[in-house]
Structures are given as structure tokens and as C-alpha cells.
Design a protein around this nucleic acid. Structure first.
Lengths: 345, 345
DNA sequence: CTGAAAGCGCTTACAG
DNA sequence: CTGAAAGCGCTTACAG
């Protein structure tokens, strides 16, 4: 609340007057951009407290040519992982005193994308976080001026100088190796269409298969229509050699389980089925699903921290930080849908 | 891309020079704030296109004392409904050329809340959307200057002059009446702790119960630990008169179903169980869950539209729109977990 | 260490 | 209809 008598919210001039100093001095005090005598420091501090003065973001942004804000460019705005990524980044931004903007790129035509991005840039954000979803977003990287700090979430290693990615490929490997460790001789993989990047679960599965000396194996691909996966489960039930399935996501996993059961195959007694993502229902399922959990909130947080380092370096005229592709590790969650091979093995 | 030769991004002065007019004239053209001769209009239009000029958000914000941006104040940032609400609001904002900011209030201490809000306000947003989660947020409404456009999502009817709420109470009523319509004589309700507002599922259930002439019935309250609900399911299985349960959310519903089944009670043959929220797993469950689906994306969209109407009115000096509490209707989704009463009924 | 001056990019009265 | 001037709230050289 501004003190009574003062009509609107206080500005730097009010502080200067009350403290008996000039406006630039208050500015220097605020930003630590030059020494201010102890005496004046105290007076200014008092005045600020008294008036409950908050510097204007926009005036600052205009003078500095850059706003204390970052914006997240995203598609798939309602995808559950996006939520967590955004939340992690937003909290970190907030804690550093940065405003956090979100602009989605889904649902607009290709030629509107450029103007949307220009609009975002015209707000002078200090940096951008781009969260990858498809090829389009990667292309978009090239449309962004090189001098604006940027970090890419996801994508292939090397798509951008500053990048943070979830341990997707590692996750695929871990879950497959876990199944091998249980004693299974082979792990069948079922997945949906994956992006063209080099950090996928399927590649991780293949890594583990190769290490295990199994090369020829093909993965099954399914669509998002779950009945297709149920159908596949029924079909796979016929394969007497099958003992372990790594499904690329939890929904596919439970659908496969349904299909297997339809044919009298028990999970995990006859066939182990692991999912991926550790979605909310994974632990509630019967049997509770073994899965792989990514820490998307942390992914968002690290993306902001990485961006912040660039922003600070730029601001203080230092060398930019070393380019880096940070990977945020997920975690294997073992539950009841996987076990050592039974009669089939 | 700025034309070669021009170092940085073009500003209004560049446009004015190229078009051979004064800066204010370009401004008038841009904002339609005064007539500009056709001749100059064309020259300006050309210059803008040639330079690919975009007005600076922040300069505009400083001059206008208000930025073309809205910010969403929220808690529960990773809650699934929050995501959808945000997405709906963000898309609407984007389509109106507004920047969209998000600031979460969770995870900060009570005394940081005020300064966080002040920070948000110091960016001169044109309006605020507050998405209700708990009492705290409602109190917070009073800390916000009256002259800034605002809409509240959720809360009790009347908590704010401009409000948009999901049909929660109506949903509770609809689902209960649906069960009565199936022939059930009584509907037991199990819910988690609900906010103190007057728009809850439980109140809707009670409305329907009262209409059916059943008043004394108490609801069961459970925590978020699902094993508690499983336990309750086992206990309820003993009640030979029980034929229908309305669970306040899908997770509780499936847990109750587990408990009932543990005791040999079949769903829906012996007992119907309806959930609420229509979460992603509802349709995948066995039996697929009857539930009530809210359109949270639409909720967010309408919130922005309502805010936008206020912003426009204020900007053009018109009377503000009539206060309004809009309700966004959800939808009953009938699936396999509910049926007419069987042997018990 | 500190003030007067100029500028960030735009808009809004003020005079034509 | 249109230009010259002043201002939005802050920061950054420039001189002390």
C-alpha cells in the first residue's frame, strides 16, 4: 500500500526525494552498480521501506533493453510432462525474481509461428526456454537471434549449445537390463512413434539388447488407440517363448496386460511387463506397474538455472558458460508387474 | 530479420523515417487512435512490412502504464486441472496478442506472497487471472488494487465480481441423480477434504439426496492415501443394503472398487461405483469408470475472455461489463462401473 | 562517491 | 490530418 496522501504507486523519484538524494543514486543503490556512501544507503533504504517502493519492471526493461523475464516456448501444452517442466522452470524463475511467460506454439499455422515468436521477442525477455516436442520446434531454433540466451529442453544431443534432456535413452537401457537381470533371455519392446532424436527409450532398449548379444530383434509399433495394444497383447500371448515386455509407456503396458490376460497369460507369473513414465495410475494398477520415472520438474528447474547462468554472464560482460548438455536422471521403479521368468522361461 | 545494413531490430523512428512521416503519425496509424491520410497510411504500411517492424511491448507498456499481458496467479502448479486451465487461458491470450505470464504461489512463505504479487504488478499486466485453490488465494483477492481487471477461477459464487467456475456442484447432483435414475434407492458418497466454498461435488450430492427425500445420510471422508479407500471399500462391502457409491474422484473410485472386490462384491453387478474428473485412466480401468468430466481448458479460455472484456472496456473508457459468475458445464460420462441395481437392490 | 543530462521506444496532449 | 514537445520510470555515460 502506498502511504496515504500519495496517489499512486511510488516511483524512483519519490524515493530520491524522500531520501534527499538524486535519482541516479537510488538507481546505483538498487543495482549495486556503483558505490554509495553508507549515510545515503541508509536513508535510501529507509525511504524504500517507508514507501514500499518496487522498481518498475517495464521501465527497467526499456532502459536495459532487457526484461527480467524468461519465456517458455512450448507445444503440447496439456501434456502432463509439459506441466511439470513448466512448473519446475517457473518456480526457479520466481525464486530468482524473474517473471515467467508461457507461449504455446500449438494450434497456430506455420506462418503465424514466426510472428508469434517476434511478439515474444518484442517483450525483451532475458532468455528463452524451448521445450522440444517435434521437428518443427528444432527448426525454429534457427529463427531465433543468436544473442539471446536460450536453452533447449529435449531434442537430440547437440541440437543446441545449451541443453537439458531427460535420461530417456538411459531409461530404456536400465529397464531392459533390469529385465535381463531378472533372468529373462529376451525382452520384447512395444512403443509408439518416437521423435527422430537420438535420445529415445527405444534406442536405449536396443543398446541393452546389443550388449546382451541380441541384434536382430524388431520392436513393435502401436498407435495411441489402446485397443490396438490390447490386440497386440492377445497376439503376443501366443508366443510361448515370450517372457518379458518393455512397453514404451504405461498406457501401452496396461493395454498389453489386458490382452495377455484375455488369453489366459498371467502377469507377472508368465510374462513380465514393464511400463515407462510412471504415470499416476501406474502404482494403482493391478498388478502395480514397474516403470521408469522421469523428474520433469527438475528438468525445468535445471533449464532455468542453465539459462540464468547465461543471462548473468551476459549481463556482467563475462564469457558465456561452457556449452553443455545436462542430463537429468530418472529412476527405475520396481513394482509387481515384473518378476523372474516362470514356467515359460 | 532486420534488413541488412540496419544493425538491430527496427524501431518506430525507422518506420517514420522510411515512410517520411513523424513518429506520432506512425503511432496513430498503429493504434488507430486518430485519422491518418490514406497516402501516409500506405507509406507507413509499406515501411512496416519492409522493415518487419514490431512495436516494442515494453516501450508501449511504459507509455501506456499497462502492458499487453495478463498473468495467471496459481497454486497447485502441477495439478492436472491447473494445466488445462492455464492452457486454455494461454491460448486465448496468445490469440488476442497478449503475453501470458504464470506466477505460482505455492512453496513460498506467507510473507513472501505480498512481495511476489507486488513484483507481478510492477510489470504492469493488463489484468490478472487468479485460480482458486484454497482459502489463502481468496484472501489474497483483497490485496489486489481494485482498478486492475481481474477474474477469479473457482471459489464460492460471489467471491469476486468476475468469476468463472466449473459446474462442480451441478456435477455432483447430476451424477447422483443418474444413479437414482438407474433405480438405486440410496447413494453413498465418499470424498476427500473439499474447500470451504459453496460449489462442491458433495453439496451437489446432498442437493440430489435432499430432492430424493434422503436427508440424514452422512458422507465418508478419506485422505489421499489410497489404501485408506481400499480399506473403506472392504468395510462398505459388508453393508448388504449398499448398491451405489458416488466417489468424489476417480482415484478414490478405483480404490473403493478394489476393496469391494477383495470381499467378493462385484462392480457393477452388485454395487455401482461412479468416479469424478474423468482422469486419463478412467476409461482404461476395468471396469471402465463412469465419471464426470469438466472442461478445464474451456474454463481457462472463458476466464481470459472475461478478463479481456474488462481490459477493453477500461482501455476505451467505457463502462466495465456487468459483474458475472459464468459456469462452465461438465459432462456425465457413462461407462461400465455403474448399472441398475442387481441382486442386492 | 554523486548530480545533471540524455536516452531507451512509445504515446498523448498541444498547437496548428 | 499532422508535427514538435513532453513524459512514462529507469539507467548509463559524463563531469565533477
Amino acid at each position: 500500500m502506498p502511504p496515504s496522501g500519495n496517489r499512486s504507486t511510488p516511483v524512483i523519484k519519490d524515493v530520491a526525494q524522500l531520501a534527499g538524494v538524486s535519482v541516479p543514486t537510488v538507481s546505483r543503490y538498487l543495482n549495486g552498480t556503483a558505490k554509495v556512501s553508507t549515510e545515503k544507503r541508509e536513508k535510501i533504504a529507509q525511504a524504500i521501506k517507508l514507501l514500499d517502493y518496487k522498481p518498475s519492471f517495464v521501465a527497467r526493461a526499456l532502459a536495459n533493453k532487457v526484461m527480467d523475464s524468461v519465456t517458455m516456448l512450448t507445444s503440447l501444452s496439456t501434456y502432463w510432462a509439459t506441466t511439470e517442466v513448466n512448473s519446475g522452470a517457473e518456480h526457479a524463475a520466481r525464486d530468482h525474481g524473474f517473471l515467467f511467460g508461457v507461449t504455446s506454439l500449438d494450434g497456430i499455422s506455420d506462418d503465424e509461428i514466426e510472428s508469434t515468436i517476434n511478439r515474444v521477442l518484442s517483450a525483451n525477455p532475458a532468455g528463452l526456454i524451448i521445450s522440444e516436442s517435434d521437428e518443427l520446434v528444432i527448426q525454429l531454433l534457427h529463427q531465433i537471434p543468436k544473442d539471446i540466451p536460450l536453452v533447449l529442453i529435449g531434442g537430440s544431443r547437440g541440437d543446441a549449445p545449451y541443453q537439458v534432456i531427460p535420461s530417456e535413452r538411459e531409461g530404456g537401457r536400465v529397464i531392459t537390463e533390469y529385465l535381463f537381470g531378472l533372468g529373462h533371455r529376451n525382452v520384447v519392446h512395444v512403443h509408439r512413434r518416437e521423435g527422430p532424436n537420438n535420445n529415445t527409450r527405444t534406442l536405449g532398449w536396443r543398446d541393452a539388447m546389443t550388449d546382451a548379444g541380441i541384434q536382430a530383434m524388431e520392436a513393435y509399433q502401436v498407435g495411441t488407440d489402446l485397443s490396438e495394444s490390447v490386440e497386440l497383447g492377445r497376439k503376443l500371448a501366443q508366443d510361448e517363448d515370450l517372457t518379458a515386455i518393455f512397453a514404451g509407456n504405461d498406457e501401452t503396458a496396461i493395454s498389453l496386460i489386458k490382452g495377455l490376460r484375455d488369453e489366459g497369460v498371467r502377469v507377472p507369473e508368465d510374462v513380465s511387463v514393464a511400463g515407462y513414465n510412471d504415470q499416476i495410475f501406474a502404482k494403482m494398477w493391478d498388478p502395480a506397474l514397474t516403470s521408469y520415472s522421469q523428474n520433469f520438474v527438475e528438468l525445468g528447474r535445471q533449464a532455468f538455472e542453465m539459462l540464468y547462468a547465461q543471462i548473468e554472464a551476459k549481463r556482467s560482460g563475462e564469457e558465456p558458460p561452457e556449452p553443455e548438455c545436462r542430463v537429468v536422471e530418472g529412476e527405475l521403479i520396481v513394482r509387481d508387474s515384473t518378476a523372474a521368468p516362470g514356467r515359460r522361461g
